[in-house]
Amino acid sequence: MVLSVVAGVDGSAESLAAAEWAAHEAVRRERSLRLVHVWNWHPRQEDGEIATAAQRHLARRFLRQAEERVRAVCPDVRFTDEQMEGPATAALLKAAEQAELMVLGSRGLSGFTGFLVGSVALGVVAKTTRPVVLVRAGETSADEHVPAADGSAATDTGYRDVVLAVALDDACDEVIEFAFESARLRHARLRAVHAWQAANPISLGAGDIGLVDHPWRSDEWLGFLKAVLQPWRDKYPDVEVLETVVEEKPSTTLVRAATGASLLVVGHRLAERPVGPRTGPVTHAAIHHVGCPVAVVPHF
């Protein structure tokens, strides 16, 4: 069964940007696009029928807006649309089961407060076993490309870097492969980034003090990173790879590294915690504060 690229549509500016991004990604992957809108069923019989009819009409309008956006920016994409009954998170999780990847919108906030990701999107990211790409409002296809020679936005220039966050203590094949494939599809450079922090003497045991502040520690981490990525370099020989290690807080490194990127790829370990499934701190920071599209790839 050939899986499609699925985009959640709710009439918002961010969902229209997500639909546009998803359309281009579907063409890159030679997949069809599936536009999905979720509405909530009203259980009360008398008001329920009227409310349901109204929601179906509104859903049709939202889907039509997304279809018009998709046709205008990506006329070559093959797409279908569908209305689903809520709750929204559960419905989108079901839709994601039949998807190669799910694309959802995130709303940008002004200043340095980052990006607002709604509870539905967070719920999907936390629980789905499929990759999810979050796209901010205002994102266009030109934002993925390097500017033209005169500095203006362009869509016929090369793609900006794809950035991959690599946690060397938890490196995952699914995450790395998604990043390499994304770079290959775009003919873009892959920039793999690992952030490390020096060990705290208080947390070290007897005999471990020599691990602190070695001047060659960055070179060691870089060697580990290159070794982890070598099999993927062999599998994707056409992808140019730049490895970078930074002694810094990982979330800070990622936000800076993703500036000017076409896509940031981060991993999300699927694990049930006592308070329920959530994203880790690095992934949380990425999806709230990075401006470019963010691909969250789940793994076990």
Rank of each mutant, 00 (worst) to 15 (best):
A13N: 15
L242Y: 09
A90C: 13
W216E: 10
T157L: 11
T252D: 09
V36F: 02
L92D: 04
A183L: 14
V212M: 15
D219N: 14
S4P: 08
A137K: 14
V241E: 14
K249F: 11
P250Y: 04
G223K: 15
V193F: 06
R130E: 09
L134M: 13
D208I: 04
S203E: 07
E67M: 15
A261G: 12
F112S: 12
C292P: 08
L104R: 03
L109H: 15
P250H: 14
R217Y: 06
D150G: 02
W196K: 04
P215G: 09
D150M: 05
V246G: 04
A206I: 10
T113S: 15
E220M: 07
V290W: 02
E272F: 03
D238N: 14
R269A: 07
V135A: 07
A148L: 14
H194Y: 09
R136V: 01
A59E: 05
V228M: 10
S203D: 09
E85H: 11
R71L: 05
V38R: 05
A121S: 11
S141T: 15
V266N: 09
F224N: 03
T52F: 02
A96T: 00
L35I: 03
V77S: 05
A88L: 08
R130I: 06
G151R: 10
A54V: 03
R191T: 07
R136A: 02
T128H: 02
A99P: 01
P87A: 14
G267R: 03
W196L: 07
L33E: 00
G48W: 06
W196P: 00
L270K: 12
L35E: 01
G123I: 01
E67R: 15
A7Q: 10
V125T: 08
S152K: 10
A54P: 01
A99R: 00
T89A: 06
T155V: 05
L211T: 14
Q98L: 13
D150E: 02
